[in-house]
Each structure stands twice: as C-alpha cells, then as structure tokens.
Write a protein that binds this DNA or RNA. Structure first.
Length: 620
RNA sequence: GCGCCCAUAGCUCAGCUGGAUAGAGCGCCGGCCUUCUAAGCCGGAUGUCGGAGGUUCGAGUCCUCCUGGGCGCGCCA
C-alpha cells in the first residue's frame, strides 16, 4: 500500500533500529506501521508479530529491544514498547514540514510513480503489466425513460472513480453509453403515436425527457395489465396485447429499416431525453470525454456475430447464435443473435468493446454497472478473450447494489420511483429554507443559489458514495434531507470553518506568511509549537490523505475516501472547537503552526472532496 | 434447482493485507455559543459481530456447513 512521507520517514528510523536478522526493508516496515487504537498510546505503532518467527523471540521482547534501540532525536521523540507493539510519539518539529508544508504550499499528494505501481502490481501478483490509459464507462441511461435516484448512484460512483484514477496518475477516458434503441423505445413511441391524441402529443416546455418517461411508464404498465388479464383468460385483453405487440414490433422494424417518418419521430423524442441528461450532468458537475450510443454499435455487433460465426468461435443453438462459455457453469450459453436475426444488449457490448479498444487505445476498461449484470459481464469478457482481444484480461466490471425505497425496489409499475429532479428540488429548497435563510440579508442571491447548489450536490453525492458498493441503499427522503452528522454538508461545513479562520486572520493582519512554508527553520519552530492533542490529531489525520486516496483508487471504492474524509473532518472540528487551539489570539510560532495547520487542512479536505466531485463552498 | 452478494448497537453503516479493551452517525439522556460558523464540540447508556464447527499464538476479518434476506439464470436492456 502507498505510504505517506510521514510513515516512510518513521520506517527509516525503525529499520535502523531493527536487528539484522529481521531482514525487513523500509518498504516492508512502512507497510506494517499502523495507527494505535488510542492516541494516548502514541502516534504510530509497529507490531512485532511478524518478527517473532525469524527472531525466535516473543513479540513483546522484540518490541522491548527495538524500542531501546531507537534514538530519541529527530522524527521520533519517544518509542515505548507496549506488549507486542512499539509505539512511537513523533516530534512535530519534524513531522510538520513533512505533512503540512506541501499541502499549505498548494501541493496535492503525488500519485505513485510508475516504478512504484509496477512494484505494487508485482507484489500483489495482479498483473505484470501496468495500465496507463483507462476507460471508465458509467451512467448509461436509457432515452425515453426517467432518470431517477438509482441512476444517480451510478453517476456519482463512475464520476468519482474517474477522479480518483486521474489523481492516482492514470489517463482516463470518461465514457457514457446511452440506450437509444430497443424495446423500451418502441413501447414509448407506440404510446406517443397511437394512444395519445393529437392535442396531447405536444410535450411541455421543460422536462421533456421526464414527460417521455411518463409515456413509457404508461405504455409499460398497460402492456403488463393486458398480459395479466390475458393470462387470466380475458379475450379482449389478449387481442389488445397482440395488437400492441405487433405494433411495437413494427415500430422496431421500421426504425431498423430507417423508415424516414419514424426516424424523424425517434430523433425528435430522443433529443428531448438527451437534452435532459445534459442538464442533469451539468448540474451534477459531470462531464464525459466520449459518449457512445447503442444505435452506433448495433450494426457493427451483428457484423461481428456473423464474422465469428463463420470462424467457428460462435455457434448456432435453437436458431439463435451465441457462444457456450463453459466456465460459467450455471448458465453457459451467451446469446448474441436472436432467432429473428436481430441483436441483443450483449451483441452491442461486444461491438462497443471493440470500438473502445480501437478508437481510444485503452489498456484497461472499467464498466460501472449494477450488480445484476455480473454474469453478463463475465460472459462479455470471456467472449472477448475467445475472440482474441487481449484487453479482455484488463476489463473489469464494478458491480454496485441497487437503490431501493423503504417500500421496496423502485418500479414504474408500483409508481414508487423517485425522480432525480424531485430529489434535487427538495434538497435545494430544504437547504435554502432551513440553513441559508439566515444569510438572506447578508449574502447576494447569487451566492445563496451557488451554495444551495454546492451543498445539495454535496449531500447527494456523499449519500450515494458513502455506502460500500456491496450495500444497497434504502433511499429515505427525510433521512437524506437531514444533513447533519456523517454527511457531505458536514465535510463542506468543516472546510468553510477552516476558510473562515484564514479569512479572519487575513483581516486581522495575521495571515499566513507565504514564505513560511519554504523556510525550514520557521517551519520547524511552527511544528514544535503544536502542543495540543487536537493539533496533533489533525496533523496525523492529514498524513493519511495520500494513502487513502491511493487505496480508494486501487480498489475503485470511493467509499474509502468518504470514510477517511469523515475522520479528517472530525479532527478539523475538534481542533476548531477547542479553546486551547484558538488561532487569532495566538502569536509567534504558535500562530505560525496553527496557520499552517489550518491551511493544510483546508487544502487537504478540499482536494479530497474534489475526488468525490464535491465542492467546498467559500462559506456556509 | 444452480450461481453471486448481504447479515456488526434500537435504526443506517465503518472496520485496509487476520493483531492492542469492536467504532461512527441518527435516535435517547446530560453539558458547551461575550474566542475565530451550534450544518459544530464534549460526556453517558446500548453489542451472543446471524448460528455451529475448523485453521491460527491470535478470527468481525480466512475455510466448511447451516439459517435468514436480496439478486441473476437463451431470444428484455
């Protein structure tokens, strides 16, 4: 795992004190170093369990020996054996320049070098080759359908993964893949063209995509109703169902045949959805480098099926074409062409993969798609491999659990879908009414609007990212509106307070001297002046920033970052609530130390929030 | 039936490669705004880490089985 400069420095001290026979290098030691459960024990801890075997001594005895061998000068002020651990207390005179100075200077944690990444890969035996150019595909909404809170989880996850990977040194192509063809379009257009009368066929001025989504739901629900009634023996329903099915099939066929009249309708309605998606992405602060459309890979997919059928990679089965991936024992057949000769979702995914590999020369391909598609992607990757795409080995699915409501899974059928627009509206209004109203006389309307937007987005993004991907999110609107405790706004608030201190210091003529962070002597004195436990705690929390961001990127888990940032914010608030840590009333090196600490905390938190796509407001 | 995932405090969840008395938020009780934003801070109460075996010096974490829940399983996307 990536280690912080602080841990690395401590590892150097430890290695020098280790017995020869320990045979551990700095990297090994750094990887073993952990944080004691209780700050009273120390700042860093070195566990001696691993050494027990090679040294043929008990861990406590080893801890004892190491502790006595450590010189009490430089970074380590105190080394105390406690059972099997050597607990280190650091001298902040040396720690502050390592941890705080770069951040206060405006430097963000450096991504690992290529050599480090290779070493890490080798150590983990993941792959000998290190990917540089990565594509992350996410969002993938369907046109003609509503964009709801479930889609928001995907959007937040994908966007954060993109940001994490970029911060970790990768070149990332952020990709979207829009579902603009298929049965759902036919259902929607059937309702639009055949069921709605002329007068009702005009969409509203705003939220046209949403309006289309309603048509789709109505159509979908009607078909299900008829189907149920038909199964129960209702002849009229059966007739209606058959007629509707014939019509949707006709619509699909005409679209495939590029029927000018229907294509015109398709293009017009599709555009309504696309415009709405753009608006959502703009509000959410998400942008894509490449947008793929299902409509653009449809034909290519079918050509590939034909080609690989000829080559014998694919086979015919019951009139359909596919491949038997025996590796997936419980469902080996992967269908790629229907009996009627048309393509499937799977077909298009093969074509899309080829397009990605060729067009963008990526060497790693990430798909952020919900967990229900796990088997599908295993098939896709296995199939790509058998087709000869070496990148298949470096393709991976990031599965995440669904967003549900207290009433169960969201379903248009049940009418319990919470649209993204509703969440956005309610969150923004709630923040204005309950928190920002106190500033109406003080701040401009522009600033209030900006902060309402930033905080609403912060609450939504954090809410979507803080859960591990394997946990489903039960979306409870009231709970989401209560933006206190472990929430995005808490993090933003913490940043705003840091900023406020710096602003007031500036106003009082006690601002941070920009030359301080490059003045070794003054910096040491400033570090040495940090005597309060809250100051130490905050510094130690900041030391974790780089390593945690790296871990989150490696594991493709923004939730790692969320949890870490909560700890950082807690350390920040403990500091700013402590009477003993007052900044403005401090003088000399104590003032210097606190200003550097606050600057570093603000920079670190802001940067970390940025990896989640959350902005830190100037004030709130 | 087969496969994948989940199960930790009343609720929602953390818990990195197994390691020091299992943590946080919400809720509950009690404190803290003439010193820097109370969207905050401090203190208190609450746990058979679903169950049973096993591996290990050491298991919430690894293995096996079981129970409960969710999801997926050839012509939808």
């Amino acid at each position: 795992m990536e280690t912080s400069p602080l841990v690395l420095a401590a590892a150097h001290v430890l290695v020098a004190a280790l017995p020869e026979a320990a045979a551990l290098d700095v990297g090994d030691v750094a990887a073993l170093i952990e944080t004691p459960p209780n700050p009273d024990l120390g700042d860093l801890a070195f566990p001696c369990f691993r050494l027990a075997k090679v040294l043929r001594k008990s861990p406590p005895a080893i801890a004892q020996e190491i502790a006595t061998a450590i010189p009490r000068e430089g970074l380590v002020a105190e080394a105390r054996p406690t059972g099997p651990y050597v607990n280190l207390r650091l001298d902040l005179q040396h720690a502050a320049p390592l941890v705080l100075a770069p951040l206060a200077r405006g430097q963000t944690p450096a991504p690992p070098s290529r050599a480090e990444r290779v070493a890490e890969r080798v150590a983990e035996r993941v792959a000998e080759r290190v990917a540089e150019r990565v594509m992350v595909e996410y969002s993938q909404p369907n046109t003609h359908k509503a964009f709801h809170v479930g889609h928001m989880r995907n959007l937040c996850l994908g966007d954060s993964i993109v940001r994490l990977l970029r911060a970790d040194g990768y070149q990332v192509v952020a990709a979207n893949y829009l579902g603009d063809v298929g049965a759902h379009i036919a259902k929607c257009l059937w309702w639009y063209l055949d069921v709605l009368d002329e007068a009702k066929r005009t969409p509203p001025d705003h939220a046209r995509g949403e309006w289309l989504g309603e048509l789709y739901s109505a159509a979908s629900n009607q078909l299900t109703d008829w189907e149920e009634a038909a199964t129960a023996g209702d002849a009229a329903a059966k007739a209606s169902l058959d007629a509707a099915k014939a019509r949707t099939t006709e619509i699909l066929r005409k679209l495939e045949a590029r029927d000018p009249e229907l294509i015109a309708v398709w293009e017009r309605t599709r555009q309504w959805s696309l415009e709405e998606f753009d608006e959502i992405y703009r509000w959410s602060g998400v942008s894509f480098d490449r947008v793929f459309y299902e409509s653009e890979v449809d034909e290519l997919g079918l050509r590939m099926v034909e080609e690989y059928l000829q080559r014998g990679v694919f086979v015919e089965s019951e009139g359909a074409v596919g491949i038997f991936n025996e590796e997936i024992k419980h469902m080996p057949f992967f269908m790629l062409r229907k009996r009627d000769g048309t393509s499937l979702y799977a077909t298009k995914d093969l074509a899309l993969a080829q397009l990605k590999f060729e067009e963008h020369e990526i060497d790693r391909s990430i798909y952020v798609v919900d967990v229900r598609q796990s088997d599908h992607f295993r098939h896709v990757f296995l199939t790509l491999k058998k087709m000869g795409f070496e990148q298949a080995e470096r393709s991976e699915h990031v599965p995440y659990e669904m967003v549900e409501l207290p009433s169960g899974a969201m379903a248009t059928r049940k009418g319990n879908v919470i649209l993204f627009s509703a969440l956005r509206e309610r969150m923004t209004r709630h923040l204005r009414e309950n928190y920002l109203s106190k500033y109406t006389s003080e701040w401009s309307e522009e600033e209030i609007a900006l902060v309402a937007h930033q905080v609403a987005l912060g609450a939504i993004r954090f809410g979507m990212l803080a859960h591990d991907v394997r946990q489903k999110i039960v979306f409870d609107m009231d709970a989401w509106l209560a933006v206190e405790g472990d929430t995005g706004p808490y993090l933003q608030y913490s940043a705003a307070r840091m900023r406020s201190i710096l602003r007031k210091a500036e106003e009082a003529g006690k601002g941070l001297d920009p030359t301080l962070t490059s003045n070794a002597e003054r910096l040491s004195a400033a570090g040495a002046a940090l005597q309060q436990p809250e100051e130490r705690g905050l510094l130690l929390a900041l030391a974790q920033l780089g390593p945690q961001a790296h871990r989150a990127a490696q594991e493709l888990r923004p939730s790692v970052m969320c949890n870490y940032l909560l700890e950082l914010a807690k350390a920040i608030n403990r500091f700013s609530n402590s009477k003993q840590c007052h900044v403005l009333s401090a003088e000399g090196s104590v003032l210097d130390g606190r200003l550097v600490l606050v600057s570093a905390a603000l920079a670190g938190l802001t940067w970390g929030l940025g990896l989640l796509g959350i902005e830190a407001p100037q004030r709130m």
